[in-house]
Design a protein around this nucleic acid. Structure first.
Ligand SMILES: [Mn+2]
Ligand SMILES: [Mn+2]
Ligand SMILES: [Zn+2]
Ligand SMILES: [Zn+2]
Lengths: 138, 138
DNA sequence: TCAGCAATGCAACAGAAGTGCATTAATTCA
DNA sequence: TGAATTAATGCACTTCTGTTGCATTGCTGA
């Protein structure tokens, strides 16, 4: 918890109770989570506070947003060194059709994609759907 | 219009007025459209009818759904020979940050993507964001 | 200390997706 | 043909997500 305080301070984010808790939750889940999940995890906290907490994290680049195609925006802690806004750093995301969890495949970068003449690519989002490692054990 | 009737019949879709109109609209737009755009194009038609029309097209594989990351589901006519459910046929989509239009890049297939051990890829969605050919002329 | 700014809680809103149900239209088949 | 059956439509309504306005509370730094 002391470490989380330091992380927040290092990123110029004021330390508050809900920020600590949300960060810890994201850290412990080690996964990609929707706002509604955070909401359920903290029954007493207000949704808009959690929403703004996540947005603050996002603006300060310690969380990145993921659109995994489920229709709900999800979020994950940035790994150390994650420059989620830089094109070359874009990693892909895997959505498991069995357990419905989405994972950051942090060290699987999106390969360079060719676009037709006249088009300029600035950004990319790649989501692979299938069955994850855990679900494949069964 | 006669041709559209034939296409519908060939795909075992009953021919109705709204189906003809929606199909023609999609055909003429030659683009990726949201339900709300169809809605605006036909002021008089009911939203749920249009919704179910699109769903019917989708089930019968003459339209495919696109999640371009804008938060709104979009749809486009399948090109002849499009097997949008088969992995090898997955083409990529381009979203222009200038004009906000999304295009099917039908003959740009998603390259084979490596996933970590234990993961099985079944499907993929790749959206490139940037500036499209038309907007680049300015 | 207290003025000023930031964070929170509550309410409310907007947009999209989806559904239940009664009505209307089209098909089937006796 | 005409009744019975099935499909499509229109309308209203719900749910879910994301988002914002605003008053209140809490923190901080001159
Ligand atoms: Mn990620
Ligand atoms: Mn397409
Ligand atoms: Zn799984
Ligand atoms: Zn454009």
């Amino acid at each position: 918890m002391k470490e989380i305080e330091e992380i927040l301070e290092r990123n110029k984010i004021r330390v508050t109770a809900s920020r600590l808790l949300v960060y810890r939750y994201l850290y412990e889940r080690r996964s990609v989570v929707a706002l509604s999940e955070i909401e359920n995890a903290f029954g007493r906290a207000d949704r808009s506070t959690l929403y703004r907490t996540i947005k603050t994290f996002e603006e300060n680049r310690i969380v990145h947003q993921i659109d995994d195609g489920t229709g709900v925006l999800k979020y994950a802690l940035c790994e150390p060194g994650c420059n989620c806004n830089i094109k070359s750093d874009l990693h892909l995301h895997f959505h498991c059709n069995e357990c419905n969890e989405t994972k950051c495949l942090t060290d699987h970068k999106i390969p360079p994609i060719e676009v037709p003449d006249g088009f300029v690519a600035e950004n990319a989002n790649l989501v692979i759907k299938g069955v994850c490692d855990k679900c494949n054990l069964n």
